[in-house]
């Protein structure tokens, strides 16, 4: 499904990702943990194709396609979805219109007819209920005036509607209380199946109590330095990132 080999990437001429390898099979959930500044968010942006994130070496394949060769919107249509750590507010564009356009872009990619307004509204309402947002959030400007938790839930709602094959959750737990965390996790878990894969990027182990990973990777200084199963996350929680060396001793987990 996703194959990252020897990835090197830089932002503003500073190299952040320094030879990252990662392979993800269909239906797998991979957690990526790591101290601040390890390159966790950068990885999400690089994979999604954000401007300013330059790949200097390495390859990324998604479902057999060269991902790095595609524009941002093409990657999304190939099934890549990034749930943002800081979802963007877009006043003047309604959440509804925004999601309808994206859903129909995906449908076009799959050779399906666009949904009518009524058909879309029905789906959107269901997804909205699922993430426990009031229905009037569909009419509001995209993320406009939403609280941190509402923004994260809005991301999950989009994920549910877009039916991607690879979901990257970038710190979807940050700033959430336990109830909101539960809603986000339930949303994610409802989307798990044997085809859809997840990369769960998080600083804390807490999220992984709710979304059980198949694999846990530790990202430090732009590389994956340790991989294991869910127990690795617990180890990090207990001992911090001290095992990475002196530099990270103070870094709490």
């Amino acid at each position: 499904m996703l194959k990252i080999s020897n990835l090197h990437a830089s932002v503003e001429e500073k190299t952040i990702i320094k030879g990252l390898d990662l392979e993800i099979g269909p239906g797998e959930v991979h957690a990526i943990m790591g101290p601040n500044g390890a390159g966790k968010s950068t990885l999400g942006y690089v994979l999604s194709g954000r401007d300013g994130y330059e790949v200097s070496d390495g390859t990324v394949e998604l479902n057999g396609k060269d991902l790095l060769d595609l524009d941002v919107e093409e990657r999304a249509r190939e099934g890549l979805f990034l749930a943002f750590q800081y979802p963007v507010e877009i006043p003047g564009v309604s959440n509804m219109e925004f999601m309808k356009e994206s859903v129909n872009a995906m449908r076009e990619q799959r050779g399906e007819e666009p949904l009518t307004a009524a058909e879309f509204l029905k789906k959107a309402k269901e997804a909205c209920k699922q993430v426990q947002l009031p229905l009037d959030f569909l009419k509001r400007g995209v993320n406009e005036g939403f609280s941190g938790g509402e923004k994260k839930r809005n991301e999950i709602m989009q994920m549910i509607l877009l039916e991607p094959s690879l979901c990257i959750l970038d710190e979807s737990d940050s700033g959430l209380d336990v109830d909101a965390l539960q809603v986000v996790a339930d949303g994610v878990n409802s989307q798990r199946n044997d085809k859809r894969s997840f990369i769960v990027v998080t600083h804390y182990q807490r999220l992984l109590d709710y979304i059980k990973p198949d694999f846990v990777h530790i990202l430090a200084d732009g590389k994956i330095v340790k991989s294991g199963d869910a127990s690795l996350a617990l180890e990090v929680e207990k001992n911090g990132y001290a095992f990475l060396g002196k530099k990270y001793e103070e870094s709490e987990a």
Partner: peptide, 24 residues
């Protein structure tokens, strides 16, 4: 640019995203 990137990352074609973002 950030809003544009956000829309593109949801698969919305660039020309459409620009219209939606700036034509409102």
């Amino acid at each position: 640019d950030t809003a544009l990137y956000y829309m593109l990352s949801r698969g919305i074609p660039r020309s459409k995203a620009l219209v939606m973002l700036n034509f409102g």
